[in-house]
Design a binder for these strands. Structure first.
Lengths: 97, 97
DNA sequence: GCAATATTTGTTTATTATACCAAACAACAA
DNA sequence: TTGTTGTTTGGTATAATAAACAAATATTGC
């Protein structure tokens, strides 16, 4: 395993880790339906803004979501819809366990 | 979010976390090519048996890999090939970052 | 200015992950 | 039986992260 390979592995791991959290996974699934403002996510998760904001930053840094400010609100959307395919795969894993 | 939903989220998260580690992700990618004995993985990762064995257990508990003892060796294989599709998706994420 | 929305920062606490060593175990060979 | 090889488990120390909330800081709309 050379440096290049290690780097790629680390990058992939970062994306996976970003999604590998109940709150963040929930948000990803919400965003798969359509964009959401932070306020909606705060309400759905029943966590305060700072917490949700941090989680969103993790997803954003991993390149999974995008944000856009419109008026007072910031809307988040799923940047990579293909992550959803994986959810189906994971559901298969769960059923097979 | 009810109990049922929380449970499903936790289950999915477990699978994701299992893969979200450089060593384990590397092994998953190896197993995607074909089954491997622990010895091969030990060699490739340059970690000792106890460490590799633990990582494999995490993957196994998550339902991602299967093991089969044949003679002295234990061979691991990828139980859910669809995880690989996700890797392509993730590669897309990485390039878009 | 004031209220509403969202982010950032600081800090604390809790959790977990990781790695190695040593010991146990299992299968086969001599 | 004994030795050898391959693998797993138990124990443990260290390191790394994660999670939560409070408080401070933008930014916008009225």
């Amino acid at each position: 395993m050379n440096k290049q390979e290690k780097y790629v592995l680390a990058a992939k791991t970062k994306v996976l880790k970003a999604i590998a959290h109940p709150a963040r996974l929930w948000m990803v699934e919400q965003l798969a339906v359509g964009e959401r403002c932070v306020c909606e996510l705060v309400e759905g998760l029943k966590r305060d803004y700072s917490t949700v904001s941090r989680h969103l930053l993790v997803l954003k840094n991993a390149g999974v979501v995008a944000d856009e400010k419109r008026g007072k609100q910031v809307f988040y959307s799923l940047k990579v819809p293909c992550v959803l395919n994986f959810m189906h795969c994971i559901e298969a894993v769960i059923k097979g366990t």
